[in-house]
Design a protein around this nucleic acid. Structure first.
Length: 438
RNA sequence: CGGGAAGUGGCGCAGUCUGGUAGCGCACUACACUGGGGGUGUAGGGAUCGCAGGUUCAAAUCCUGUCUUCCCGACCA
């Protein structure tokens, strides 16, 4: 993409409403713009990142056997009355009336809706297990939205729902999601640690939060440094092996957020305990028949008798993750994207746009990279070189390629790694091959 | 919802106390120079000062109401 044709409104100064790093950087890098408190438009650069995060979440869900579908954002209040949560949910739920005066709501979550779909279509134990998910916008009318997309009111969430005949099978479904989450966050380029969680209003007795570690995270966390030795990609939910040992390993070490932290517990006395900060990006629950009973989500067992199914739900804050990744990956100059979610892999800068030969060389590199399938953002604007460097550091593409008169005379470009800051001179003729293999 | 701040060109701010023709930096437009870390000059465009009402000869400035945004707390993907 040529920057001269792109829509990338970067800001030199930070808008006064943004306080934390990810919010400041998302505004400055031209990724999002605020519509109302906690509600954002995603501009092209931010949208690309959001879609990449979404794609990785989707791949790992599919890989773990979950089935993608799509439920609406607007729901009828009826199902919520039936589950008893219409009154319980409180002011966090955005309630609206349609033209006929029917009570509707903008979905804050989808347990009721998915359970209704399930109970209408699935009648036999032979159809189990099932794990259905969707990636959809939710709305929770938070008292105080803040931190940009990290705690917005409107947010993109992946939520999956598992249905099993027995609690034992339900735990297997839970474990598959547990492993899928380990893999998802590792692929996104961040370190996430599962922590035993309070089940809160969703209920149930088995639940873990996945916390991305970031120095500027919103909550304080305590965890065993033994987590460093675990490989999140070691287990595969699809190869048919028992995942319980993997889950046992990841839950054997102490890990807790400050509100769950208990200095008196045995694990907390471990010498290997370290303190850090983190951001919750995923939360999984196994809650048995909490919703299937009141909503009568039953199947017939082998004996012909109806049984309420065992359910679990599994959320990932997709839009929140974009902010969380930035919190974990930035410096004083801007964002440092992990390659898997970077909006473009390479930022190519023409530092001598008035020099026809140099420009032709840049154009050639741009064309060849594009043809080779490398995502490249090409700064071909007639602005000063300093502005280009500063802007590239801000938007944080993993690789920067700079070509100006100086290098052109000697037949070299400068290649810079945004994360390490390392610069290297590469022959013009070799840069494409080098980036293609990188 | 309790406590606290703030709304003035796109962004960051001054002006408000003490009422008297709306200002600065950045960004933007044109031209020239410049071109390896947000460069320089000249000339421009753009604001009913959040909104409504009131006081006054006169309101960004004083009074009343209201909306919005941000921060701390309780709540949360």
């Amino acid at each position: 993409m040529r920057l001269s044709r792109y829509f990338l409104p970067t800001l030199k100064e930070t808008p006064s409403e943004a306080q934390i790093a990810s919010h400041r950087l998302m505004l400055r890098a031209g990724m999002v713009r605020q519509g109302a408190a906690g509600i954002y438009s995603w501009l092209p650069l931010g949208h690309r990142v959001l879609k990449k995060v979404e794609a990785i979440v989707r791949e790992e869900q599919d890989h773990a056997g979950a089935l993608e579908m799509l439920m609406p954002t607007i729901q009828s209040a009826d199902l919520w009355t039936e589950s008893g949560r219409y009154d319980d949910y409180g002011k966090e739920m955005l309630r609206i009336k349609d033209r006929h005066g029917r009570q509707m709501l903008y979905g804050p979550t989808n347990e009721e809706l998915i359970t209704d779909i399930f109970r209408r279509e699935i009648k036999s134990y032979k159809d189990l297990p099932k794990n259905l998910y969707h990636i959809q916008w939710k709305f929770r009318d938070e008292i105080r939205p803040r931190f940009g997309v990290m705690r917005g009111r409107e947010f993109l969430m992946k939520d999956a729902y598992s249905f099993d005949m027995t609690a034992e099978d339900g735990v297997k479904s839970y474990n598959a999601m547990f492993v899928a989450y380990l893999r998802t966050f590792a692929r996104l380029g961040v370190r996430a640690i599962p922590m035993r969680a309070d089940t809160g209003p969703i209920g149930g007795d088995l639940s873990h939060e996945f916390i991305v570690l970031a120095e500027t995270g919103e909550s304080e966390v305590f965890f065993d440094e033994g987590f460093n030795d675990f490989d999140p990609m070691a287990a595969d939910p699809r190869d048919g092996t028992d995942l319980q040992p993997v889950v046992d390993q990841w839950t054997s070490l102490y890990a807790a957020t400050d509100e769950m932290h208990d200095t008196d517990s045995a694990g907390a006395k471990d010498k290997a305990l370290v303190q850090g900060r983190g951001i919750e990006v995923g939360h999984i629950f196994f809650f048995g028949d909490k919703y299937s009973k009141p909503l009568k989500a039953e199947v017939q067992g082998p004996d012909g008798k109806p049984v309420a199914v065992q359910m679990g739900s599994y959320g990932v804050g997709v839009s929140r993750l974009v902010g969380a990744i930035i919190e974990a990956c930035h410096d004083e100059n801007g964002i440092i994207w992990p390659e898997a979610v970077a909006p473009y892999k390479v930022g190519l800068m023409n530092l001598a746009t008035k020099d026809e030969a140099c420009t032709a060389a840049c154009d050639k590199i741009y064309t060849e990279l594009s043809t080779a399938g490398v995502e490249v953002l090409y700064d071909d604007r007639a602005t000063g070189a300093g502005a280009k460097f500063t802007n590239m550091d801000l938007i944080g593409l993993p690789w920067q390629v700079a070509l100006g008169n100086r290098g052109f005379k000697n037949g070299i470009v400068e290649l810079k790694n945004r994360a390490t800051g390392e610069r290297e001179e590469v022959a013009i003729g070799e840069i494409v091959a080098k980036l293609t293999n990188q």
